[in-house]
Every structure is written in C-alpha cells, then in structure tokens.
Amino acid sequence: MGTFNKSEDTIFRKSFVIFVVTGTQAPFDRMLSIIDKWAVNQDTYSIIAQTANSEINFKNMTCFDYLEPDVFNEYFNNADVIIGHAGMGTIIKALENKKKLVVFPRLVKYNEHRNDHQHHTAIGFEKLGLINVAYNEKDLFRYLNNIIEIPVKRKINQNAEKQLLKKISNFINK
C-alpha cells in the first residue's frame, strides 16, 4: 500500500481532527478497522492515522505508514483527540500536552504484541486516573460517539519525579 490514501490537501478539510497512533513496531489493524468502520457514518472529524505498515487500505482515514518524529509531533499537537495503542510514548505525550486520549491496548491473543503488558499498563494508569481506556470495540465506539465528553486528564510537567532524578544523578556523580 502507498503512503497515504487521500491527497494531502484534503487532510484538514474538516475542522476537527482525530489522530490515530499505533507506534512503529507492528501494525494494529483491529483498532484501525474499528475506527475506519465508525468513520463511515460521521462527517465532523478528519481522521489521520499512523499505521505502522498496515496492509489494509482504509477508506475513511488518511493513513501514513510512518511519520518522522517532528511531523508526528505536529499532527499530535494539532489533533483534537488522540486514539492510540497503550504505548508509553503515546500516553506520556498526551499527558505532557494535555490532550484528550483514549487508549486501546494491544492484546497477545490477536498477535498484536509479544505479551499483554499494554493491557496491564492500561489498568495501572487507569487506576492512577491518568488515561481513558477502551478495552473492546463497544468501549471504543462509545468514546468515538461522544468525543466532546472525553475527559482530559491532568497535565504533567516535562521531568521525572525529583526523587528519581536525584537517585540517578547521585549514582552518576558518586
């Protein structure tokens, strides 16, 4: 498949943007297919997806196999909502930038990852009140049908906890 489905000048033809993020290591067709299916019946959002070399030709979103980090950051920062796999890059970036985020964990039973750590991460972060999680298609549809109501979680600053930084710098400089 090519780098994108629609011509680039149509990407922002609608005023609201959903940016879909799968990480760079492996495709995530289950999540992309759900979003593509949902998108058939909506006309409010432009959907841009970073698809990690998916072989499916999604009809209702603008797809990129891979985006360079600076381009990726631009799409990320300009989006109204991020829908992503439960990768830490996605989660932390959303928290840093106070973005609306829904994560959809990769599962080993669909061969989407080597183990189910994304599922456990999602549970752990949900407990901390830091993310919105869709565990299945029904959950994801519910969020997509009511994007306005998706809560924005608290903003975090750019650095790790002081205690951790001190531990590392003490070790380095001893």
Binding site: I92, N159, L165
Partner: peptide
C-alpha cells in the same frame, strides 16, 4: 524508540554537568 525514548527524555536533567551520547533506533 517510542515510549522508551520518551521516558529517557524525562530523566535527562539528572545527567547535567556530564557529557551525554544518545543511542536509539530512529533517525529523526
């Protein structure tokens, strides 16, 4: 790349005063 790199960027202030060489998997 990805989350591992993002987490590394959040601890870089603990490296201050030292020379840092970075290694990762994305050119960008």
């Amino acid at each position: 790349s990805g989350g591992h790199w993002t987490q590394m960027q959040r601890i870089t202030s603990s490296f201050s005063g030292n020379e840092v060489v970075y290694v990762s998997t994305l050119k960008g």
